[in-house]
């Protein structure tokens, strides 16, 4: 899978309470969740995010609660891929399970800036900052996990028998 998009960048420890505040958790409607995505950290996000944009962030992205509403809100807002220095573990597995693509690469995060255009090849683990031409190599996910993501998430994988 290859993604290309413009970058929206945040810092370390972006927690699930700012990705989608609990006051909006009285619904599981994807559109409504997406409309409040990142609100407490960056109130401009929902208004400016474009389909296919790539979110770039620091360490421990998605820390805090297990609310799947967080990766759902990000995916539904149009973000195609999140690149972070590291992910909190529940967010990591939730993203895989719902089919939101994620990559860990600290060097890329340090070098890439807001507004740059980035291309990422998930199978090869290669990230290219097209604005500067710099390339970064990262560990691709194990086959088992890539298969869940490319099948559109865990539920789809169980349904089509690819999850064993």
């Amino acid at each position: 899978m290859v993604f290309e998009g413009k970058v929206i960048k945040y810092g370390d420890n972006v927690d699930t309470d700012v990705i989608i505040p609990a006051r909006y958790l009285n619904t599981s409607d994807k559109k409504e969740l997406a409309s409040h995505c990142m609100e407490d950290l960056d109130a401009t996000f929902a208004g400016r995010v474009q389909n296919g944009d790539i979110m770039v962030a620091g360490f421990n992205f998605g820390c805090g609660s297990s609310r799947e509403h967080a990766p759902i809100a990000i995916k539904e807002s149009g973000i195609s891929l999140v690149i972070a220095k590291s992910f909190a573990r529940i967010f990591y597995r939730n993203s895989i399970n719902i089919g939101l693509a994620i990559l860990e690469c600290p060097e890329a995060v340090d070098a890439i800036e807001e507004g740059h255009t980035v291309e990422a090849d998930l199978d090869k683990g290669v990230i290219t900052d097209k604005t500067t031409g710099k390339q970064f190599k990262t560990e691709p996910f194990p086959e088992f996990i890539q298969s869940i993501i490319t099948n559109g998430g865990l539920v789809e994988s169980i349904k089509n028998g690819s999850f064993k």
Partner: peptide, 10 residues
């Protein structure tokens, strides 16, 4: 351990 809703469903 904590998981998300999809893990819970499965």
């Amino acid at each position: 351990t904590g998981v998300g809703s999809t893990d819970m469903a499965c």
